[in-house]
Design a protein around this nucleic acid. Structure first.
Lengths: 201, 201
DNA sequence: GTTGCGATGTATCGGGTCGATACATCGGGA
DNA sequence: TCCCGATGTATCGACCCGATACATCGCAAC
C-alpha cells in the first residue's frame, strides 16, 4: 500500500524521493520507522511506468535544482494517477484492514466520503475483534500449557486489541453522529485522563 | 526471526510443518496472524541445510504416519541447532527490539537468564521510547500542518507507545525485584480493572 | 583554510515474508 | 455416495527491508 501513500502525497504537491520519505515518516509515524529506499525508488519507477505519476520539469517552481549531474528527480501525479488514487482509497479488500493498509487509508480519510470511512472503520474493527477472539481462545484453552512469559504476552496483546476496538468504536460513533474528525483532545503531561464517554449521547 | 521461533519449538518436541504453524499461531498469537507456508517450508529447508535441524525417522514415536506417498516430514533439532538457538536468544542486535523479534524473544524468556531478559527488555523500552519521542516531535512541530484524522492517528500511536513503555517498566521492575514471571492477573469480563500499582513497592 | 562530518539525494542487491495457488489424503456428515 | 473441511507439503510472484555505494552541499572545528 505504499502505492496509495505516494499517490496521496503527490496529490498535495510534487515531490522527489527524499522528500516523500520524510513526509511519509511524519504522516505515518505510528506505523513504520521510515520507508526504505529499497522500496521507495523501485515503487516510483513502477508507478511512473504504469502512468500514475510522471517526472516534473526540473527547471520549474520552488524547489531549487542541485547544480550537478544526477540532480533530484521531482515527480507529480497524473490525471490517471488521481483516478487510481480515488479507486484505491474507496476499495475495501482484506489488505485494507491490516496495520499498514488501515494506517494509510486512515491518513487520507479527509479525502473520502463518510460511507467509505465507515466501511473501513468497521472492517478494521472486525479484523481486530477476530484477533481478540483468537487471543481469548488461546488464554481460555491453552493457558495451562503455556509458561508465564508467553501468557503475559498474550494478555498484553489482548489488552491492546480491546483498546483498539474501543478506539474504533469511538471513531465510528463520531462518524455516524456527524462529527467528522475525532473529538478527543488531550492536555499534555496528564497521562491518563478519564476518557470522555461519548458513545451513545 | 522465524528461525529462532522454529528452533525454540523444536527444542520442546519434534514436529512437522503444519504442527509448527499451529504452535506458532498460539504462541505468537499477538504478533502475526499465522506464519505463511511460503515462509515456513523454505525456512525449514534452509535450517536443515545449515545443520540446525534434521529429519526425524518417520517410523518412530507418537505421531502416526500418513500411509501414503509424500507423507509428513518430521523435523527435530540437532546439537548444533541447540547451540545456535542459545546464541540467538542471548544476542541483542537491533532486530531483537522490533515487534517481531522482541515477541519471539519474549516467548522464550523462560529459557534465558535474568541478565539477558533485562538487556532485551531495556533495549525494547529504548526503542519504543524513541518512537514515542518521534511522535511527540511530530505532534508538537507539525500539528498545524496535519488534518484531524492524521493527528488522531498520531495521538493514538502515542497512547500505544506510552502504554507499552509502562508495561515494559513493570516487567523490568519485576525482573529486578526477583519475581521472575509477570504478576498481574485479570479476572475475566471485568474490562478495566485499576492496574495494581506495583512500580516502586 | 582545509578537513571532515552530517544532511541531502538517487540507486541497487540480497534476502525474508506474504498471499495465492496447486496437489493430495483423510474423516465424517448429508 | 458424495462432497466438504481439516490435514499436509510445496512453489511462485510480489512486496518490502537493511545494507551498501556513490555523489554533493553546508557548516563547524581544528
Amino acid at each position: 500500500m505504499l502505492e496509495l501513500a505516494i499517490l496521496g502525497l503527490l496529490q498535495e504537491a510534487p515531490m522527489h524521493g527524499y522528500e516523500l520519505r520524510k513526509e511519509l515518516a511524519t504522516k505515518l509515524g505510528t506505523l513504520r520507522a521510515a520507508i526504505s529506499y529499497g522500496t521507495l525508488y523501485p515503487t516510483l519507477k513502477r508507478l511512473k511506468l504504469a502512468g500514475w505519476i510522471s517526472e516534473a520539469e526540473a527547471s520549474s517552481d520552488i524547489i531549487p535544482p542541485m547544480t550537478s549531474k544526477r540532480g533530484r528527480v521531482v515527480y507529480k501525479i497524473t490525471a490517471e494517477g488521481k483516478e487510481h488514487f480515488a479507486d484505491l482509497l474507496t476499495q475495501t479488500g482484506p489488505e485494507t484492514y491490516d496495520d499498514a493498509g488501515f494506517g494509510v487509508h486512515f491518513t487520507f480519510f479527509s479525502r473520502t466520503d463518510r460511507a467509505t470511512r465507515l466501511r473501513i472503520l468497521e472492517g478494521r474493527r472486525r479484523r481486530i475483534e477476530e484477533r481478540r477472539e483468537g487471543l481469548r481462545e488461546i488464554l481460555a484453552r491453552a493457558a495451562d500449557r503455556l509458561d508465564a512469559y508467553t501468557l503475559e504476552l498474550q494478555r498484553h496483546g489482548l489488552d491492546a486489541c480491546e483498546r483498539e476496538v474501543r478506539w474504533l468504536e469511538e471513531l465510528i460513533t463520531n462518524e455516524r453522529s456527524g462529527r467528522t474528525p475525532a473529538v478527543r483532545q488531550r492536555t499534555e503531561s496528564t497521562p491518563e485522563p478519564p476518557r470522555p464517554h461519548l458513545d451513545r449521547p
